[in-house]
Design a protein around this nucleic acid. Structure first.
Length: 437
RNA sequence: GCGACCAUAGCUCAGUUGGUUAGAGCACAAGAUUGUGGAUCUUGGGGUCGCGGGUUCGAAUCCCGUUGGUCGCCCCA
């Protein structure tokens, strides 16, 4: 047992773990690139204030924060949103709209680890700045779907639940709740799926009892699972603002339907997201079959750039994590097996043959061919075993007999066929064999 | 911050009422095997039994503490 271990909630990535992580990153990056998002990165360590300004002082309990040697209050980043708001905000005047950015980065939260949640984890973040209309939501939800279906996950595997904090506030206002009460109700709604009726305890503690008729209306609104139901529920409260909002809803759902993605998305007002800074549409991605925590979440946050000192810039974004995604892919058998096979394994007869082999090995590698060879001289039998175990498609054999003729052997390890070729043709022959059938 | 369960080799685990030098399979390495394959056989390396203390003639085993893991609660950006 080693004397040192990684810190709680932090992971070592051994090659097979790293391979799985890279697979996840690769799908995310390909998806974002295909959607025209540009990649950025930012510091791991930020001023503590960046997060307390956004989320309040209570957040500090969940942060990896400390004082640096210059007596600055700093924190490892727990999320990307404030950082990207700062970056976009400070150059907003010069950036072409819409601003579509993504990042893949590691984040740190000082919390107890549990299933799907660690202290250090990776997230893909995608955000669109400068577009107030629902086209931004369409783009991001479509990207989120691609970031999951790119692994081979289908509509039976996951679901995007779409909700709207604006509509909730509108509805609660119509029921006579003031702003503070409405926020309390949203807090209860956020917990209702998990806790049932107990979710309202925090509300009644602060705002007093909630009469049954209004509570039933709230619970009824919560059950809405489609646009038609939504429109029917809101019909009694007709107003221009509401009509415009419902028009936004139709545009989002029609846009996604036109992309062929309707079956991935459901209207579901039970999703409100805990954070207060969301200002409109909010959405989460869920595993349909299992009991995993949310796969991804996001929404619109039109006030945050300004709150963090930037211009008034509408924004919408989402994040998806590597831990839950990895668990889901393992459960569904969609995580590819670790593969580190070279293209070519070179079998070397002995010290004299090694010199010729090394020259070709270096030339092949410089040309981009993955080449492996034994460091120490050993029996041919052992080397062929090693060649087979390496998973290489080809073996190049540098034996004394062949080299005496100025030749080497090229063996196809899959079908065990073998041919001799002049040593000068090794590079061309290897290339042809690798691209060939 | 709170709670439950767990901890023996790189991995999965065995280890009797507390009793000599803690074992197996897999993995790794060497050999059988100096010109052709993932097999087989033989051999080997690898352990402060998570750590610390206590009980005992004697602790992997019993007790206390602690650290870590897993899973919940709180929280979830």
């Amino acid at each position: 047992m080693a004397s040192f271990q990684s810190l709680p909630g932090f992971r070592d990535f051994y090659p097979e773990d790293f391979f799985r992580r890279q697979h996840i990153f690769r799908v995310w990056r390909q998806s974002a690139t295909a959607f025209g998002f540009q990649e950025y990165d930012a510091p791991v360590l930020e001023p503590l204030e960046l997060y307390t300004t956004k989320s309040g002082d209570e957040i500090e309990g969940q942060l990896f924060s400390f004082k640096d040697k210059g007596d600055r209050e700093v924190s490892l980043r727990p999320e990307m949103t404030p950082t990207v708001c700062r970056m976009v905000g400070s150059r907003a005047g010069a950036l072409k709209r819409p601003i579509k950015w993504f990042s893949i980065a590691e984040f740190y939260r000082y919390e107890r680890a549990q299933k799907g949640r660690l202290r250090a984890f990776n997230q893909f973040n995608a955000d669109i700045f400068g577009e107030a209309g629902p086209e931004a939501e369409i783009e991001l939800i479509a990207l989120l779907i691609q970031c999951l279906s790119g692994f081979g996950l289908a509509k039976d595997d996951f679901l995007i639940r779409l909700s709207d904090r604006d509509l909730w506030f509108f509805y609660l206002e119509a029921l006579g709740f003031n702003d503070s009460q409405a926020r309390g109700v949203l807090g209860a709604i956020d917990r209702y799926e998990k806790m049932g009726d107990g979710a309202f305890k925090a509300y009644t503690d602060v705002h007093g009892p909630l009469e049954d008729s209004r509570k039933q209306k709230i619970l009824g609104f919560l059950q809405i699972k489609g646009l038609a139901d939504l429109e029917a529920a809101l019909a009694p409260f007709g107003s221009e603002k509401l009509a415009a909002r419902l028009a936004d809803w139709r545009r989002v759902l029609e846009g996604l339907a036109a992309m062929g993605l309707a079956e991935f998305v459901s209207v579901d007002l039970a999703v409100v997201r805990g954070l207060a800074y969301y200002t409109g549409f909010v959405f989460e991605a869920f595993d349909r079959k299992g009991d995993l925590r949310a796969l991804a979440g996001g929404g619109r946050y039109n006030d945050l750039v300004k709150k963090l000192g930037g211009p008034d810039l509408p924004a919408v974004g989402f994040a998806i994590g590597d831990v839950t995604t990895g668990l889901l892919l393992e459960q569904r058998g969609l995580m590819p097996a670790f593969a580190a096979a070279p293209d070519v394994y070179v079998v070397i007869g002995g010290p004299a043959e090694r010199r010729a082999a090394l020259a070709d090995i270096q030339a092949l590698r410089a040309a981009g061919v993955r080449v492996e060879y034994p460091f120490k001289d050993s029996a041919f039998g052992k080397q062929f075993k090693a060649a087979a175990e390496s998973g290489a498609r080809l073996a190049l054999i540098y034996g004394g007999d062949e080299l005496a003729r100025g030749a080497v052997k090229l063996r196809n390890l899959a079908d065990r066929s073998e041919r001799e070729l002049p040593i000068a043709e090794v590079r061309a022959a290897v290339r042809a064999s690798l691209v060939g059938p």
